[in-house]
Amino acid sequence: MKKNELPLHHVSLGEKVIIKKLDTNESIKRRLLDMGMVEGTEVECALVSPFGDPKAYFIRGALIAIRNSDASSILVERVKEEAK
């Protein structure tokens, strides 16, 4: 894993990231693709449920809940801070 890269479920509330790779099994992959989660898509972690799992992400205008076990195999990259 490169610097700046992390699995999706580690993204903190309100943080925006870019999808780098879907490293999941076929069935969940298709679901995620249906939601528009292709490489390069911007995703924001919008909600965390009371027990910390699942979390809801803002993807292409929709709010989608994904379990941490599924999100752990989605590799994302932090959006670089523009100030630097």
Partner: peptide, 11 residues
């Protein structure tokens, strides 16, 4: 084992 799960939370 639990299968994958995605659920849309509508506005």
């Amino acid at each position: 084992i639990p299968s994958s799960f995605t659920l849309e939370l509508p506005p």
